[in-house]
């Protein structure tokens, strides 16, 4: 599973990354988590409000930081979808 956190490095981006790492660890998933700070790439995903969460190249959340429970839900849905 490839997870990307899109955002230029603001406080909310770090919060999203932290919660995502916790959710991944809780679920025991093997996932590669990377931060994308490059503006053209962020815009290329169609994202205009950061931070955004991308799971396997699908934007699943943008413009706000979901709770850990919500991220867990998003990860589970993406995981079972494959």
């Amino acid at each position: 599973m490839h997870i990307k956190i899109l955002g230029p490095g603001c406080a909310n981006c770090h919060a999203l990354e932290r919660r995502t790492r916790e959710a991944v660890a809780d679920l025991g998933l093997t996932a590669e988590i990377s931060a994308v700070t490059d503006y053209p790439t962020i815009a290329g995903y169609g994202v205009m409000s950061t931070p955004a969460l991308v799971i396997d190249e699908q934007v699943v959340a943008a413009g706000h930081v979901p709770t850990k429970a919500q991220i867990t839900g998003l990860l589970t849905a993406a995981n079972t979808g494959h």
Partner: peptide
């Protein structure tokens, strides 16, 4: 602009 636009 790639991907689907999701309303934030």
């Amino acid at each position: 602009l790639g991907g689907q636009v999701i309303d934030s």
